[in-house]
């Protein structure tokens, strides 16, 4: 998902002729779909771009726990509470798989987390929207995790081995998230009161556009895409993935008996796809810049968690040293 606007620092893609022997050898491997592993030679820009992309992706998983954590103590039943906690634990796990993959590139986890806390590193814009009702837990699972799956399924074929393997694990688990979200909404729409049904529709109204923004800027405004595609860090364009998401989601929306807040949405017989309206890009860039409804709160919560946990980490190290000395004596 979860990586929007990743800088490559490359203005123009080199042709094979312009490359050094090492670069050419590297690019030929990528062209032949041979995975790059941690100890293989790689261009510095490839390494740095991957660190940015994977850390952004990891931060998204970690920050993504916060909107859901908001509802753990208010889940309507024990069953729903257990499901929600399992899902949140998965997000933590996904963050950790990704930080591990990032570390294989020589990045330091603490430094990258510092960048998140200082606002230097980004995470997905979607998590800067608030979760205002219980129905949001369903809509987040269905739409947000649904959008994440569309993105991540293609990333399973990404050129960097550790990233690709993390994606394979994550995709396996992500489908539980989407199904539990959709089932929750379906239960409310089929068996709920009118107030509950209205709550579902309200939730979709608020989250639909932010979910579409998760795929990042339109293709005309993705200056970094060409290099990322050549390196196969990215495998399909933002607009292609966004279209796929809309096409697969609208029939599910109709089954729920709900609508999306887009008067331009309609099936286009000649294209074989749904047409949909223009995203409010000014809102997208504002949220990315840090001016969304929850940006400050999200980062402050993460920072507090790290600071408040410092004594636990120190105590664990002190205990481990003590045990080691005891065993040595």
């Amino acid at each position: 998902m979860y990586a929007q606007l990743v800088e490559t620092g490359v203005k123009r893609i080199k042709s094979l002729d312009e490359m050094s022997a090492e670069e050419r050898n590297f690019q030929e491997k990528i062209d032949a779909e041979i995975k790059i592993e941690a100890k293989n030679w790689m261009p510095e820009a490839y390494r740095q771009t991957l660190i940015r992309q994977i850390s952004q992706h990891a931060h998204s998983e970690i920050v993504g726990m916060l909107p859901e954590g908001n509802w753990v103590t208010r889940a309507p039943s024990l069953k729903r509470k257990l499901q929600l906690m399992a899902k949140i634990q998965d997000e933590a796990g996904h963050g950790l798989y990704l930080y591990s993959a990032m570390e294989t590139l020589g990045a330091d986890r603490d430094q990258e987390i510092d960048k998140l806390h200082s606002g230097k590193a980004k995470y997905s814009s979607i998590f800067n929207y608030p979760t205002l009702s219980w129905a949001d837990m369903g809509a987040v699972g269905w739409l947000v995790d649904g959008a994440a799956i569309v993105n991540q399924v293609v990333l399973q074929r990404t050129s960097y081995g550790p990233y690709s393997r993390a994606m394979i694990r994550i995709c396996k688990e992500e489908s539980f998230h989407q199904r539990q979200g959709y089932e929750m909404l379906l239960t409310m729409m089929r068996h709920g009161t009118q107030a509950q049904k209205d709550m579902v529709q309200d939730s979709i109204d608020r989250l639909w556009w932010p979910a579409l923004m998760m795929f990042g800027p339109s293709d005309d405004n993705s200056p970094n895409s060409a290099q990322s595609m050549a390196w196969k860090i990215k495998r399909q364009s933002n607009d292609e993935l966004r279209q796929r998401f809309v096409d697969q989601t609208i029939p599910q929306l109709e089954l729920l008996g709900c609508t999306v807040p887009d008067p331009d949405l309609k099936w286009n017989e000649s294209r074989g796809h749904y047409d949909f309206g223009e995203i409010r890009w000014d809102e997208f860039y504002e949220v990315l810049k840090g001016n969304g409804p929850c940006n400050q709160e999200r980062v402050a919560t993460r920072r507090k968690a790290i600071e408040d946990g410092a004594w636990v980490r120190e105590a664990a190290v002190a205990y481990a040293r003590k045990q080691q000395n005891k065993n040595a004596a």
Binding site: Q89, G93, L96, Y97, S100, E103, R109, R165, A166, R313, A316, V317, Y319, A320, Q323, Q324
Partner: peptide, 17 residues
């Protein structure tokens, strides 16, 4: 994959989770 831990007993617990 990998985990961070203070010692190997904690590494087993973290790996389990």
């Amino acid at each position: 994959g990998s985990v961070h831990a203070a010692d190997s007993a904690m590494a087993i617990e973290n790996a389990r989770e």
